[in-house]
Simulated scan of single mutants.
Amino acid sequence: MTIAPDNARQNASHVYRALRDFLQSMDDTLPGKFEITKEGIVHDMMSPGRQHELTVLHLRKRLERVMPEDIVAHTGGPDVEAALEGIMRHPDVMVIPWADMEGDGSFDPRTLIAAIEVVSRSNPDNDWAGKMRDYPLIGVPVYAIFDPRTATGAVLTDIHPTPDGPRYATRKDFVYGEDVTIADWTISTDDLPRYQD
C-alpha cells in the first residue's frame, strides 16, 4: 500500500501528538527529562548533577555579561517545539530575544539565536548525535555543545541542505580554557567544571 505524502505527514502528526500527550500525562510522575525526536521519546533518567548544573549557570552568567539587555540566556521552560517536524527539545541554555519569550506555549525554535547543551554523563549521544541532527532540522541557527567528560566542545553553524535533511556545515571544536564564540558573543571557558569519576 502506498501512502501519499499528505497522509504520511498527517499520520506523523498524530503520532507526535500522542507522544506529546503521553509525556504531559507523565509530568512529575517519572524521574528524568523527556524529549521527542524523529525516532521517538528520549528519556534521560538521571537528574543533572552538580557539575552539569554549575556549567549551565557559568554559561548563562558569562553570556549575559556580554549580550545586550534585550537578549537573554534562558535556562528554564517551556520546551522548544516544532510540531510539524515532530520534535520537542529542551536546551540547557536558550539564547533568545526577550520579546520572543512573551506569550503562551512552547518556544518557536526559529526565534532562538542559539541552543546550548551541556553533555549529559548518562546519555552523551543525545547531545552529540540526536540534537546535532534535530536542531538544524527545526531551524536553530547555532548549536553549542560543552562536554564536561572531556573538557571539550563544539559550536555548529551555517545550516545547509543535505540528502538527509538540513545539517550544520561549519563545526568549530574547542577545548576548555579557550575563548568560544556563540553567535555574536565570545565567552571564556576557563574554570568550567568537569565530571568527577
Results as ranks from 00 to 15, higher is better:
6 D>G: 10
135 Y>K: 08
137 L>Y: 06
118 V>K: 00
155 V>K: 04
123 N>W: 08
154 A>M: 12
106 S>F: 05
149 R>T: 10
50 R>Y: 09
53 E>C: 03
27 D>M: 13
19 L>V: 14
77 G>F: 10
165 G>A: 07
67 M>F: 02
111 T>H: 13
63 L>S: 05
100 D>P: 04
76 G>W: 03
196 Q>M: 12
83 A>D: 12
91 P>I: 12
2 T>S: 15
100 D>Y: 12
70 D>C: 10
43 H>W: 15
133 R>T: 12
129 A>T: 14
95 V>Y: 10
124 P>Y: 12
62 R>Y: 02
47 S>E: 06
80 V>H: 02
162 T>Y: 09
139 G>F: 01
158 D>A: 13
3 I>W: 13
36 I>K: 01
52 H>F: 02
177 G>R: 01
145 I>G: 08
152 T>D: 03
105 G>V: 15
129 A>W: 08
108 D>N: 01
70 D>T: 14
174 F>T: 13
53 E>P: 04
118 V>M: 03
178 E>G: 04
103 G>P: 04
158 D>W: 06
145 I>K: 08
181 T>H: 05
65 R>T: 11
48 P>T: 04
2 T>H: 15
188 S>C: 03
195 Y>K: 01
42 V>P: 08
36 I>Q: 02
29 T>Y: 11
102 E>F: 13
161 P>Y: 07
117 E>N: 02
2 T>G: 11
63 L>D: 03
78 P>W: 06
68 P>A: 00
56 V>K: 05
146 F>P: 04
139 G>Q: 00
58 H>W: 11
69 E>F: 13
29 T>R: 11
168 Y>K: 11
122 S>F: 13
64 E>V: 00
78 P>S: 10
85 E>A: 15
16 Y>M: 03
196 Q>F: 08
1 M>C: 13
38 K>H: 13
34 F>P: 03
130 G>E: 12
48 P>A: 15
81 E>H: 10
185 W>S: 02
77 G>K: 06
154 A>S: 13
163 P>D: 15
90 H>C: 15
47 S>P: 09
66 V>I: 00
35 E>N: 07
146 F>V: 00
24 Q>N: 15
81 E>Q: 08
73 A>Y: 03
114 A>E: 03
36 I>P: 05
180 V>G: 06
3 I>V: 15
143 Y>C: 07
102 E>C: 12
167 R>N: 05
34 F>K: 06
169 A>V: 10
110 R>A: 13
150 T>H: 09
135 Y>D: 05
87 I>R: 03
88 M>V: 15
25 S>M: 14
139 G>R: 00
158 D>V: 12
119 V>M: 07
56 V>P: 02
153 G>E: 07
36 I>W: 04
151 A>V: 06
148 P>W: 06
96 I>C: 00
4 A>V: 13
61 K>M: 09
102 E>H: 14
121 R>M: 08
71 I>W: 08
121 R>I: 11
96 I>W: 04
37 T>Q: 09
130 G>L: 14
98 W>D: 09
163 P>I: 14
88 M>W: 09
185 W>Y: 03
166 P>L: 07
116 I>F: 07
71 I>P: 01
3 I>F: 15
59 L>N: 01
158 D>Y: 07
154 A>R: 15
51 Q>N: 11
69 E>T: 14
173 D>R: 11
78 P>I: 00
54 L>G: 04
183 A>Q: 01
173 D>L: 11
42 V>H: 11
11 N>Y: 14
33 K>S: 15
52 H>I: 08
86 G>N: 06
97 P>S: 11
9 R>E: 11
